[in-house]
């Protein structure tokens, strides 16, 4: 029995579902960012799996770009989390709903 593309795709889909569940259930800004990282990694896994089984290097290059953008997004998201904490003394997303304008 050899490993096929389907194995990797099922793992990727389950990871994406876990990340989506985290985004929907947590109310802490940092935990939401962590869940988004899980979702990005799930997509990366399917990119690399398709690239490797389809014999096309473009998927791996896309995975590289996704990692670069994830790094950028995390830096900005965490800076926003620090700003929210300094103005509201909490990083619950319920605090952000009180912002105006």
């Amino acid at each position: 029995m050899t490993l096929s593309l389907e194995n990797y795709l099922i793992v990727s889909g389950m990871l994406f579902a876990i990340g989506a569940l985290g985004v929907m259930t947590r109310r802490n800004l940092i935990m939401i960012l962590l869940s988004i990282e899980i979702m990005l990694n799930a997509v990366n896994l399917s990119f690399v799996a398709f690239s490797s089984y389809g014999d096309n290097v473009t998927g791996q290059v896309s995975a590289l770009f996704v990692i670069a953008i994830a790094a950028c997004e995390v830096a900005i998201g965490l800076a926003i989390a620090v700003l929210v904490f300094q103005s509201q003394r909490t990083i619950s997303t319920d605090a952000v709903s009180r912002l105006k304008g």
Partner: peptide, 29 residues
């Protein structure tokens, strides 16, 4: 290199910067 070495270390730094008072005791919606 990028995830374990840079992004998650950034997360840890921010968590230590904010301390635990900003974290809700149970934030499960």
């Amino acid at each position: 290199l990028i995830y374990a070495g840079a992004i998650l270390v950034l997360f840890l730094f921010i968590l230590m910067l904010l301390g635990t008072e900003g974290i809700l005791p149970s934030d499960q919606a």
